[in-house]
Structures are given as C-alpha cells and as structure tokens.
Design a protein around this nucleic acid. Structure first.
Lengths: 343, 343
DNA sequence: CTGAAAGCGCTAACAC
DNA sequence: GTGTTAGCGCTTTCAG
C-alpha cells in the first residue's frame, strides 16, 4: 500500500502497451475491441499481480456515475429503517454498488441540503422516504433523469416509482381483528400529518369501526412533538376516555411512548387493554404482554426496492413501478380476547 | 438542474478572468493570493447567482481526499450502533463530511472486501469496530497514513487511536450492585471470543464474584451461533443451574435472546431473578420488568470519535488518542432486592 | 495581482 | 489490433 497504487498508466508503460489497450482489457471490452489474446492475458495477469483496482473517483468523474445509491430515511436509528438499510446494503454491495445512508429527520430543509451534497457526488440513484414538502426536490431529480424510488409514502400527484404497503387494508384488518376479539372502544393514536401512509392507516381504522357502528376515538399528536410532550398528550387522552378497552398505535415509536405511559400511569391497562401497533420490532415480540403488530414485509420491500433500482440503472426509466405490498398481521397476547367487562 | 451545472471554467469565461482566479476566490484564498477586492466580489456574487457548487469528485480526484468517513460496525441494525451512527452522522455533516455506514458482520473477509471498496473511493477516514482478525488490514491503513479510529474494542498490541469504555470496571460495578441487592448465584452469559471488550466484561464479573467468594457461573455461547442455537444453549444453562438467582448478559442481543427464553420456558424467573444487561436500549427501559443496564455513553462516544477524527484530518497523526470512557449503571426493576429465598 | 498550463486516473473517439 | 489524444472539473506551481 505504501508504494502508491498502480494506475492504468503504470501498467501500460510496464507492459509496453497503451493505456487504451489496458483500459479495454480491464473493462472486458477486449473481445469487442479485438485485442489479441496474448496481450489480454498479459494485462490481466499483471494487473492481478500488482493487485490493481481502478480509482473509482476518476472513473466516476469521467463517466458521471458514482455507483453510489443513497438511502434516505427519517431516522436511521429507528429499528425499522435500520433493518431495511441492512437488507438493501447487502443486495447493493453484491451488485457492486455502495450505499450511503442518511436521515432527513422528516425535515424539508434537511432533505434539501442532503440532496445538494449528493448532487455534488454524482449519486447514481436514490431511495427516499420523502419529507412532507420534498415534492419539488423529488421532481427536480426526476427531471434530471436520475433514478428515484420513494417508499413508505408517496406524493399522490407525482408520477414516480414507489414501494409502499397497503396501509389502509392492513389497518382495517388489524382493527377488525381487535373487534373480533371483543374489543369495543378502540382508541387510535396517530400523528397530525397529511402524509399518505398515516392518512391511509387512519382510513383503515375508521372504516373498520364504522362498519360495526363503534365509536371512533382518534388522538392526533402534534407532528413534531418531542417525546415528553407526546407522552403527556397520550396520558390526557387515556384519562379523558376511561371507556377505552383497546388502543391502536399507528407507528412503532408511538407504541413505545404509549407503553411507557401505560406502564407509569395506568399499569393495569397494560394487560386489560387490547393493544395493537404498526411496524413490528423484536421489542414487541419480547414485551410482556407481547404486542400484536402489523408487520411490514421488510425483506420483500428491500428486495423490491433494489430490484427496481437495478432495473432503472440498467434500462433507464422505461416504465414507472408502483408497488403496493401486503402487510402481515402478527397476533400476539396483547390482542387476545379478555374476560368480559360487561359492555 | 437541466442546463448542466456550471463549472469553474464557465464562471471564469463568463467573467473574463482565469480559472485560477476563480478557484482561489472560491476556496477563500483570495486574500492570501491578494486577488483584488473587486474581482473577488464579482466572482462570489456570480457564483452565488448561478448556484455554483463544486464537483466533489473532481476535487477529490485532484486532492486525493474524498471527505467521506466510513463508519463500520458489526451490524448497523443493532440499535446501539444505529444510534451511534446517527450521532456521528450529524456531527460529520455539520463539518462538511459525509458518512458511509456499513456492516462487517464481524467477519474478516467481509471487512477486507469493504475496505477494498473504500480504498477505491479514497475514503478520508475510518471509524471501525474491527472484526477479530482485522488487525492486519488496520495496520495497512495506518501505514498508508490514513486516519483510523477503532472503537468498542481494540488490538492490544497495536498502537492506534481508539475510543472504548471501561468494560471491566463497569461490569464489576454492575455485578457488585447485584450482589449488594442480595443476589448470590449470578450467571454470566457471554460469547466465546477473545475480543477485548468481552474479555474485560468477563474479568469484571469474575473479580466481583470472587471478592465476595461467590461461585462464578459462566456460559460462553459459540461465537457465530445463530439465534435458535443460542437460545437452546441458554435454556440448557438455566436448566442445569436451578440455583441461579440472577443473570448478567454481556451484550444487548444476548439479553434479548435470554428474555425470550425466560419468557417461554421459565416465566417465573422473569420476575424472580435479578437481571442485568450490557448496552442499554429503549427496549430495556420499557420491558416488564424494566431491565437494569450498563449504558455506554453514546453521545460522548460519538463526539469523542468525531473530535479525534477531525483533529487527525486537520493535523495528521501527531499523537495517538486512546480514550477510555466510563459507562453508566442504570438501576431498574430487574435488579431490585427480592424477597429472601433463604440462601 | 492574475493567467497559463500541468496533471490527478480514467474513458472513448479517432487515427493508423 | 493498438496507440494517440482530448477531455471530465479541479488545484496549484510557476511565470509574468
């Protein structure tokens, strides 16, 4: 490593051939360019001998492509995103792409700044959970002909590739499951936002309770609330609705907050209530009681995302891929039928 | 974005100055090079007008520096690493660096391959949790004069920068805490590995139990065991040692596995036993019972890592930084004194 | 004070 | 079949 890494030029001069020849051989264009078998072999073996590996920067500078895929989520420390990141990473590396992860904190300005940075890096493709107001930036990328895939949510008016799950139906089914197990007053805790995935979840819940003529009780937490604030809101909600016998949290971190609130202020409800969460984590499986969850098919999402990305990179954007996957309901202790309370 | 981005050349020709002048001005070397105030202003304002931003690739190619920092951990989906990643990311971006995360799966070959890829990218600096046999590769980086900081563990013989915590003392104190609360038969569940951090944790445990003449009962799980295997080992261990009244898990994922095993096969022990874990997560706080944990100071580790990294990037490696931070014991329900069992 | 020019390592059109 | 050469966009030495 000390003696500076060999370049194509070094190889060429050492072998008394031109850089072109070397470049062609190394890029597998030997046959195409009808480089003699003998030269090809010499180049190849010498390259291996000196452990040649191309300078990707120079390559990228020249070709305008960096083979870097950006994976932008709200917060990489959310286990849901972290696990997905891992899946994507594995596939991408196998295909010779690198992945840069980053968190946009669901903030438009932050998204904007990050995209700016990446533009400078000639990033090859983007997989993005867009913040609410990022539509314009996404559009800019699309117009520049750069592969973009949204996931988790999308912009209804925008013709882009995306991979999402059927939030409405999944929530609907989970709510019906609660109802089927005897719960009659189901609270729904969500965020006050207009993002598609959250709206759809709310819709699914409402549809289910309406169908069986139950009351809908929704708590919309202020969107950018910090944890303590969210917790006191929930506490107020639970106190104001002593009639509740179940609660459905619309995201995994809401559930975490909610469980904490219940544990501290309403310990009895932890076992009395039906509890359902959206987005499964190891945590919910081990919790006592174990928490029933709507689980997004992480592996499938990751594979689908990369499948589309690779196709886009290969063929350019011929067709728009809009994929809606099904989520899985994982029934656990927290939603089993409880002893009747005489409702 | 459509009309190709402006380059220095474009600016120069538009303003009838040379690229050199523009480059100097844009890099803040105007004063140093005594570029006239007037030209400086013209360049600056025009650059802003066309929203100029340098092509980082070209810059990197020229300078040999990419401003990319690699953050390599065992598994980015481990919440401990994910949260740390987040902290590092924030600091790095603020300083104009990008961060590439990746997971080496604690595997030497994988580490090797990744480092190879990054070498091609002229990565500026590395923050690494090394896999057991990565000493040679780390050494190669050091010899090439590339900033490297290890964390979580280190190689005893190798003079490198690292940030770790005082594993032995932390484990010692946590074990003493259990003992102080009346537990007398404390099992220690760890991995069969020679990595420093795990050895130190074991040492701390042994020191504590020896001091008060208790028996040491250690389960070393096969290093690369998959989850089911680990679980059955633990189950066997618990069954073979009915005298245990507490258990100390040496990593967060061992704890997760352990809790699952207890929940399924020894539900009573979940509340009867004292439980202690290494590495805190949200999860342990919310679990019932809440799990006492030795918490690594994530913020501090992240800041320290970046502080050292920035210094290395600025000054080159003048001194070697070896930082040992203190961990915090978070006492929760799982380690409170239990009703006496008549030991 | 400013400009010309070399060159980072690679690709690819073009020439022989 | 193979070589020459012109850049990609930028930094920096050297000359004025």
């Amino acid at each position: 490593m000390r003696p500076k890494r060999p370049s194509i030029k070094d190889i060429a001069s050492r072998l008394n051939v031109s850089v072109t020849t070397v470049s062609f051989v190394l890029n597998g264009k030997g046959p195409e360019m009808r480089i003699s078998e003998e030269v090809t072999q010499r180049v190849l073996s010498y390259a291996k001998e000196v452990n040649y590996s191309p300078n990707r920067l120079a390559q990228s500078l020249r070709t305008g492509k960096s083979n870097i895929i950006v994976f932008m989520v709200e917060d990489i420390s959310n286990p849901f995103f972290a696990r997905l990141a891992r899946i994507i990473e594995v596939i991408a590396y196998r295909k010779g792409y690198k992945v840069i992860f980053c968190s946009n904190e669901n903030d438009d300005r932050h998204t904007q700044e990050l995209l700016q940075v990446f533009r400078d890096q000639q990033v090859t493709g983007y997989i993005i959970i867009p913040s609410a107001g990022a539509k314009k930036q996404i559009q800019a990328l699309l117009e520049a002909g750069i592969p973009v895939i949204l996931f988790d949510r999308y912009f209804p008016g925008l013709e882009t590739n995306y991979v999402v799950i059927d939030n409405e139906n999944a929530t609907y089914r989970a709510t019906r499951h609660l109802i089927g197990n005897g719960y009659r007053d189901i609270g729904f805790v969500t965020l006050d936002t207009s993002q598609t995935q959250m709206l759809d979840r709310l819709k699914g819940y409402k549809k289910a309770v309406k169908e069986v003529r139950l009351k809908s009780r929704v708590l919309k937490l202020p969107y950018r609330a910090d944890a303590p604030e969210g917790e006191s809101c929930m506490r107020g909600f639970f106190e104001a609705h002593p009639e509740l016998d179940a609660v459905f949290f619309a995201t995994n971190y809401l559930t975490q907050q909610g469980l904490l609130v219940m544990r501290e202020h309403f310990p009895g409800k932890l076992t009395d209530w039906g509890i359902m969460t959206f987005d499964d984590t190891e945590f919910f499986r081990i919790h006592t009681p174990s928490i029933s969850a709507v689980a997004q098919p992480l592996e499938e999402i990751g594979h689908k995302l990369m499948e589309i990305m690779l196709e886009l990179l290969r063929d350019g954007k011929e067709t728009v891929h809009q994929v809606v996957l099904k989520a899985e309901l994982r029934e656990r202790d927290s939603s089993r039928p409880k002893a009747p309370r005489g409702v």
